Structure formats: structure tokens, C-alpha cells
Amino acid sequence: QVALSRTQVCGILREELFQGDAFHQSDTHIFIIMGASGDLAKKKIYPTIWWLFRDGLLPENTFIVGYARSRLTVADIRKQSEPFFKATPEEKLKLEDFFARNSYVAGQYDDAASYQRLNSHMNALHLGSQANRLFYLALPPTVYEAVTKNIHESCMSQIGWNRIIVEKPFGRDLQSSDRLSNHISSLFREDQIYRIDHYLGKEMVQNLMVLRFANRIFGPIWNRDNIACVILTFKEPFGTEGRGGYFDEFGIIRDVMQNHLLQMLCLVAMEKPASTNSDDVRDEKVKVLKCISEVQANNVVLGQYVGNPDGEGEATKGYLDDPTVPRGSTTATFAAVVLYVENERWDGVPFILRCGKALNERKAEVRLQFHDVAGDIFHQQCKRNELVIRVQPNEAVYTKMMTKKPGMFFNPEESELDLTYGNRYKNVKLPDAYERLILDVFCGSQMHFVRSDELREAWRIFTPLLHQIELEKPKPIPYIYGSRGPTEADELMKRVGFQYEGTYKWVNPHKL
């Protein structure tokens, strides 16, 4: 086992960053958080920038500027975001240094004079007029057009580079997404736009490419001749908990499936790229999406959770019991969808996408189930092999396979070949997804960000279904809070070829 401390991990990262040409360590950078008073800024962006600063992973002359409508001070920003920093008493001095680099400007999102004030403020910072500028839009999409237009007109660096990070949702359907994309691309070049999907920053999602293309053993079996089906799962054990009003506007397909799960599907299904260059990788992902037809209604199961009468606390409440959810809402909190990649490698292999709230566990994984062994000599005792990439929690890679049961006879039983990170790298604290992705933006690497043509294809696949749901308002199937979801989803999976045995229990190697 390799035991690495946080300091050692960050030392390795620093070495990698400083050796590259793309990370300008000594240049002045300004990180501007648009929507600095909001939840995302408070819980994710400010803490992430602090962790990067604490670990010495930001360029040395980096300033952080918050911008929002609320009249706040840096002290206010500190008060609301610091509880999420997880700072230790030993880091007190470092924390003071961090907040000394912070400033805040209040202004409207659609007022040109406010942006001119913001620009004057940035120019007044040390070497601010020639600094590289990175704008993070932690804002609702309704203000994107006004904000990007004003940034472009008043706040661009004339000497350094300018980059803009856009948070999902990128529209509600193909038409609104196209409108937003066309607007942003009329102001910024594609190499300046970073559409963030934080799932692409997760260690195991990034590991998929290495697993596939750096190991000879997987190449020959990664196709329709050997793989019976692919299941991509995202499960949350909690409901909307008072935030249903926002969720109800989008629903589970827009929230998770059309982005996170579809991105994971691309990494499983794509061909080997010409290189690890950002556009070479994204070219292959677009090719996969172009091979997927629009979702067919007979390959869809929609569910909505109801309270568990035997549960406790939140578990007793259904989705419609959330006071922020519109009365009688038919918005799905669970969806199972089957897609097919219609190309030579994957023809006929079902890709089953499942996601839901208020389920029995927290889990995100990719599961490849292989065909049955031909010419069975073990009297149907063999179960199908599976390769599982567990994204969260407890990152893991393992192969479910058959071995001989101890004893006199040739009785096979299920076991696993474990390729888990935790076994080799004991207690290594890896940077989280937002840390990686923000560092990628500083480096100018777009590999783990969504390109406009990729986004367009993703919406093309799901828009007809979303429009049909909005028009017909089908009643989702009720499922109990804390269950596996509607049984109809299991029946759909069985119908397209997935075999669920229920006889195997994964042993978490992190707890051995």
C-alpha cells in the first residue's frame, strides 16, 4: 500500500502544474464570482478556492472578487462561507491571508454602469489591468444573457486571457439551449467557454479513460460480442427537503440524466481518441451522441416518491408533501431510460440510465454486464461477469466473477477481482471535483468540460421526450421513500436483457 498525506498529494500536483506551459504561476489572475451571495458560491466555490489557495495550487498573485446585487462586505462573505471551509486552528494565518486577497463589488446584473465599476475595481488591483480574468457564473440561467453581454462589453482583460465558467442547466430543451449557446458564442470563442459538469471532475469518471485505453485486457472485450448491457446509475437517499420548488422546474431527467449520466455513457462508449488533447476527446464523445436516436417512450419509466409510513423524519414525507412543490405536480423524481448506440461496436446493446431521489442508498456507478459463458459445464450455477466502476461513495473498480467454492467439488461461487483505489492508495485525500475543474480552467484544459456541439446532441436525444411529458403530463409511478424505485423499472431492465441475480454482496474494501 502507498500512504500519501494531503501535503504529498498537493506537492505532486504542484510539480505537475508548474512543469506545464499552460499554468502561468507568476502571472496575476483575477477570479470573479458572479452571484457571490448565492448558495453555490457559499457552499462550493469559495470553499474550493480556499482549498486550492491553502494547498498552494493557485497562481501566487490571485485575487478573488465577488459580485452580486446584495450590498455585502468581505466580512459578510466570510461569515456565510467559512463554515464550509473546514479550516483547522493551525490554518488561521493562512485564512487571514486568503481573505486579504478577497474583495466585493455590489451591482445589478443588467446595468452597464455596475460592470464599469467592477472593471475599475479590477484595474485598481495590483497589475489588475493586465491580469488573466476568470469569470464564474454562479447564477440562474435567466440572467446569463445580460451578464455575459455586460462582461464582454465592460470587463474583459485587454492583455491577459479571459475565460468564463457556465453552470448547468444549459437551457431547458434543445431550442433554449441553442439560443443560449448562440448568444454566448457570439461574445466569446469556444476556447474561452467552460460549461461545467462537476461529474466530469470526479476521480473515477476520469479513471474510465485510463482503464479503457491503457489496459490491453479490456480492449478486445469492450464491444457487443461480449457486453450484454451497460447500466449507469445515480441514486440519492434523500428527497427534495424543502427545495422542491427549484427541482420541480427541471425534474430528474434535466437535473441528472441528460448531463451526468449521458457524459458517463460517452466515456464508456467512445472510441479511442487520437490523443488526450481536449478536442480529440470531445470529438469522440460527440460521435457517440450522434449514434444515439431520440428516446422512445416505451423505453422510459418515470416515478415519484411517496412517504414511507414506517419511516422516520423526512422519510415519512412524499414529494408532494414538500411545501415548495406545486400542488398535484407530476414532475418525476425517478427515471429509467434505455438508449442504444447504433454503431458497429455497440449495435443492440442497451445502455440503461437510472437516477432518482429518496432511494435506498447513495450511489453513482457504471456497471457493464457481460454475456453468459458459452457451453456451460457447471449446471447453470454460473452468474454473469460484471465490471463495476463505483464513482461514489467509496470509489472502487471491481470485476464480479466466478471462482471455485472451497471444498471437494467443482462448485462455482461469485467473488470479485478488486482493482480499488483504496487498497493501493491508503487514506489518500484526493482533490474534489470542483478543485480539479477550476484548476483545469486556470490551465486552459477543456477536456472535462462540455463543448457546444456535445451539448446540442445531448438535448436532441431528450427534448422530444421532455416535450411529450410536458404536454401529456403522465402521472409518475409512486414508489416508497427509501425503496429501490418503481418495480416497473426493474421490469424494463429485465425486458431489454439485464439479469439481476441478487445473490452477490459487494464487500467494501475500504472497511476491511
Rank of each mutant, 00 (worst) to 15 (best):
E365F: 00
Y425M: 06
Y398I: 03
R254S: 10
D255Q: 02
S293H: 13
L387D: 02
P478T: 10
E501G: 10
V301H: 05
Y340N: 15
T503V: 12
N299I: 04
D440T: 04
E435N: 11
E457Y: 09
I292A: 09
V397C: 09
W506Q: 04
Q258K: 00
K426R: 12
L339H: 07
G356L: 04
R354F: 02
I377W: 11
K363W: 00
M264W: 01
D255N: 00
P326R: 06
D372W: 06
Q258D: 01
P350S: 00
G307H: 08
A374P: 14
V338L: 11
N423A: 14
E414T: 14
T399Y: 13
T399R: 02
H467L: 11
S293I: 06
D347R: 14
F334A: 09
C266S: 14
T316S: 14
G318T: 07
V496R: 15
M401A: 13
S329W: 00
V388C: 12
E470V: 08
R362V: 09
F409R: 15
K400P: 02
R390C: 09
N308W: 08
M257T: 13
G502Q: 11
V397L: 10
E395N: 08
A433G: 05
G356C: 02
G307W: 01
E312K: 12
Y421C: 05
D440S: 06
L261F: 05
S452Y: 05
I352G: 04
K285Y: 01
C355F: 01
A374K: 11
F378R: 03
P273L: 04
R424T: 08
D376L: 07
S329T: 13
T463D: 15
G311N: 14
P323H: 13
K473A: 10
E314N: 12
K505S: 15
M408W: 06
R327F: 14
L339E: 05
V450D: 02
V397S: 02
S329V: 03
R436A: 10
K285S: 03
G375K: 10
P273F: 00
V300W: 12
V288S: 08
L261S: 03
G422I: 11
E271M: 05
N385P: 04
K357G: 01
G303A: 09
Q468T: 13
Y479L: 03
Q381V: 12
K363S: 05
F498N: 13
T330N: 13
H260A: 03
H379Q: 12
V441C: 07
R362H: 12
K272F: 06
N298A: 14
I477N: 13
N343F: 06
E395I: 06
E472M: 12
N360I: 04
P464M: 09
I469P: 00
E395P: 08
P323D: 09
Y340L: 09
Y504Q: 06
A332H: 06
Q446R: 02
F334D: 04
Y340R: 12
E271C: 08
S293C: 09
N423I: 09
G485K: 01
G375F: 09
V256Q: 02
F442G: 03
V306A: 13
E284P: 05
V397G: 01
F370D: 03
L466Q: 05
P431E: 09
